[in-house]
Amino acid sequence: MKIFSGKWSFYLSAAFLALIINIALYLFDSPVGMSEGYLSISEYCGEIIEQKSIASAPVIDWQTGFLLGIFGGALITALICGEWKLSLLPENSGSDSLKAFALSVLKGLGGGFLVMLGLQLGGDSMFGQWASAMQTSVGAWIFLIAFFVTGTILSILLSRRSAEGGG
């Protein structure tokens, strides 16, 4: 069946996600997301750095479990579908030079920092904002519109600038 072997169509993906979020709201009766999972991992890493030793195993809350589940689900699916491939640099990042690697580290650290900073200001993770938008939350819509508009304008401007610079 194509549902198991190939990629899903956008309407199947959309229906599946809508169902998952609604099942999560029914099961947990609390805002769904993964911010607290990331927060507990960040605090655990902070403890390790402060004590300069591996602290005792952290207590896994449900949002950390959710994160671990995503990792496990993605890993199993990638292995089954033959999509697991070890790579050090992002797709289409050019040559495997040291410069490309350094750029990937800088972009990853800086971009990731800003994404999570923005999400914390907005009050939830991207998955949480998505789930809140389904519940007609005005705050989630403001966040998502600002996110897409800013990302699109900046990406197009940077792409034009690099095209002009390159050619």
Partner: peptide, 11 residues
Amino acid sequence: IGVMVGVWLIK
């Protein structure tokens, strides 16, 4: 639920 989201992301 996380596993299902992981499957969804890859598929």
